[in-house]
Simulated assay, not measured.
Amino acid sequence: MRIPFFRTSIPACACLLALAAPATAGTFGGNATLTTDYVWRGTTQTQGDPAIQAGFKATSGNGLYGSAWGSGVEFAPGTHASSEFDVVVGWAGNLADDWALDVNLTHYRYPGTTVDLNWTEFNGTATWKQNYWAQIGWSNDALASGHHGTYAQLGARLPLDAQWRLEGAVGHYWLDDAYGDSYAHAQLGAVWAFKAPFELRVTAHATDDSARRLFADLAGSRVEAALQASF
């Protein structure tokens, strides 16, 4: 389960592209990633195994955008979950010289499962000087539980030179209504943009004891490395 793109049906994607088409300043891009572990909000979504991920994004000149993103996943065997597709519809733009806002609706979808794992979340992210951000996410069906959940994150990136930067974030997930508990996590990573359009990222993740109680071996401390290409 992930934040970062959306999943949707072909008709929904067509609607998004139709919105973006009239704007001459619209853009289209995407990315592909090979990662040693798919970690989302501090917990592994692949039981610590590698994953291949890819996504695309269409943006109109007025800030409206739509994106689709997919990844392999590995949940409990009884769910038969092997893939995740995220579909996002949103708006992003500048509020002032140093401030930007992104608001979106993200739908997480897991096709072919024996239980309904699909759910939707509203997200908002404020960014300052392109390097510091505060995010809030809310759903009345958090993690497909049928109950409310709220997620918050503070993050920062520190460019070191033209090729290197550090990135860190701390997050808290309030799941008391769904699971009777909440948890916190943190991450710190280094990114090497060694040759456009490629980047190599190494990130260390850690969670608190509450995450271990909620998700057992899926939480805790782990390190993941990822090679990403953007276009």
Rank of each mutant, 00 (worst) to 15 (best):
G220N: 02
R201C: 11
Y132I: 15
G189K: 06
R109G: 04
T113W: 00
D49P: 08
Y65N: 08
A18L: 15
S230F: 10
V73T: 04
L64I: 14
T36E: 08
A211K: 05
P159Y: 01
P11A: 03
L19D: 14
F56Q: 02
D116S: 06
T8K: 14
P77A: 12
Y38G: 02
A196F: 09
W119H: 09
F122W: 12
F231S: 02
K57I: 05
T125W: 01
G66W: 03
W174H: 02
A219S: 03
W128I: 02
A18N: 13
T59C: 01
T35F: 01
A14Y: 04
D49H: 12
N140I: 07
E167W: 10
D49E: 15
Q163K: 10
A184D: 09
P159D: 03
A184Q: 10
A134T: 02
A92Q: 09
L227T: 11
L101D: 04
E199D: 13
A190E: 01
A51S: 12
A14N: 07
G112D: 12
L158D: 06
T59Y: 00
R165K: 06
G63R: 09
T59H: 01
D141M: 12
L19I: 14
P197Q: 06
A229N: 01
W192L: 06
Y183H: 04
R222D: 12
D217F: 14
A126W: 03
L218D: 03
G63L: 07
C13Y: 13
E84S: 10
T79D: 00
A126K: 00
R222M: 10
G180Q: 03
T59R: 00
L64C: 10
A142R: 07
R157P: 06
A21T: 09
A32E: 00
D141T: 15
Y173I: 11
F215A: 07
N123F: 01
A142T: 09
V89Y: 10
G72K: 07
L166K: 02
A51W: 04
L158Y: 12
